[in-house]
Design a protein around this nucleic acid. Sequence first.
DNA 1: TTTATATTGGACTAATTTTATCCCATTTAT
DNA 2: ATAAATGGGATAAAATTAGTCCAATATAAA
Lengths: 135, 135
Amino acid sequence: MQITRQTEYAVRTLLELAAAPVGETVSTRLISERQGIPDEFLKKTIQLLVPAHLVTTHRGTGGGVRLAKPATDITLLDIITAIEGTLALNVCLAPDYHCPNKPNCSLSRILGKAQEALLEELQRETLADMINSQK
Amino acid sequence: MQITRQTEYAVRTLLELAAAPVGETVSTRLISERQGIPDEFLKKTIQLLVPAHLVTTHRGTGGGVRLAKPATDITLLDIITAIEGTLALNVCLAPDYHCPNKPNCSLSRILGKAQEALLEELQRETLADMINSQK
DNA sequence: TTTATATTGGACTAATTTTATCCCATTTAT
DNA sequence: ATAAATGGGATAAAATTAGTCCAATATAAA
């Protein structure tokens, strides 16, 4: 019932990027050093953020990573989803899964409600809010 | 970010017990058959519910498991906690863990808030409510 | 055009957690 | 005694998570 370490890596990476001057790219090696993240693993992690449209990358000298959109438009839920896929508090709440008994199932009903409450909070605050609250 | 299968087993087990006539014991074998849970694994699961004071057990012929308290006094959170330990949305929110940087950490702050919202929902409804909503 | 810098991508390994099984001991009612 | 039931330790299998290695490709600058 926890976010994975990789998800935390992703959040810290995006916080680094959000803190950098707008439009400036940062190399994964620099991020990995500053955040103490294994650099090869960080590369994999960033490759999950690209298709989710949270960052863009540029190769070659002077290349690196930058936010794909304003920090005000990226929520914690966006990041978790990019790394872990759609959040589901139980198998039976996953998007594809369908259980014939679902309508009668009080577990899925309660967990569903709890999940809603969780999603709402995770969606409430953006990267920008997180940066500001650090100061 | 999901409850484990074992936790779901525990919930279904407690629902079985809550549905049974008050004070009556049910054998793990019967529960495992009705719920399709591997019986040896179910035993282990029940052994986690005992120290959490959710069920009591009795050995020997005619023995089995029963609720340790009224179904109105058992919440979904109680069950999750019994199986998985204290719920924490990230390592840094676990009871024992302490990070020197926590006061400045916006991730732990947001996750902490989200966790609160989740706990509240998980605590809101009891086994009794779950049984009633099935009817 | 060479060189250094950086991401891309695939294969692989290691570590950890989750799920399950086996088997024998102990308790209890009949 | 015997059958029915939980208790508990050891171990295995499966799945997920974390991390590593390396060759390929793109890019900027010298």
